Computed example of a mutant assay.
Amino acid sequence: MSKVKKVLWWIFIAFLIYAVFTQPDRAAEVVRTIWDILVQAVASLGRFFNTLLSR
């Protein structure tokens, strides 16, 4: 099972490198979008716990 996981991991890395070299603007936009989603999720969790602890 670990060999399959390792092969899939290398295929994923190769695809990322291919995507960055063939369409760098699109790859940057995808990374920026994922970053914005993560930042928004952390901010929402912070607001949730702040509200929860304020009551």
Rank of each mutant, 00 (worst) to 15 (best):
M1R: 15
S2A: 13
K3L: 10
K5G: 03
K6Y: 02
K6M: 04
V7R: 11
V7A: 12
L8I: 03
L8Q: 04
L8H: 06
W9R: 10
W9P: 01
W10M: 12
F12I: 01
F12Q: 04
F15P: 00
L16T: 01
L16K: 06
I17G: 00
Y18S: 05
Y18G: 04
A19T: 00
V20T: 01
V20M: 02
V20W: 01
V20G: 00
F21Q: 08
T22V: 09
Q23F: 04
P24T: 00
D25N: 08
D25F: 06
D25Y: 05
D25E: 12
R26P: 01
R26N: 01
R26V: 03
R26Q: 02
A27C: 00
A28P: 02
E29D: 09
V30E: 02
V30Y: 04
V30W: 06
V30G: 02
V31K: 06
V31L: 14
R32F: 12
T33H: 04
I34M: 04
I34C: 05
I34W: 03
I34F: 06
W35Y: 10
D36Q: 08
L38V: 09
L38D: 08
L38H: 08
V39N: 09
Q40R: 09
Q40D: 10
A41L: 11
V42F: 10
V42A: 08
V42R: 10
V42W: 09
A43C: 12
A43E: 15
L45C: 11
L45V: 07
G46D: 10
G46A: 10
G46F: 09
G46L: 13
R47L: 14
F48H: 10
F48G: 03
F48W: 14
F48I: 11
F49M: 14
F49P: 01
N50D: 12
L52M: 15
L52R: 11
L52A: 12
L53R: 13
L53S: 15
L53G: 13
S54R: 13
S54Y: 13
S54L: 11
R55L: 12
R55T: 11
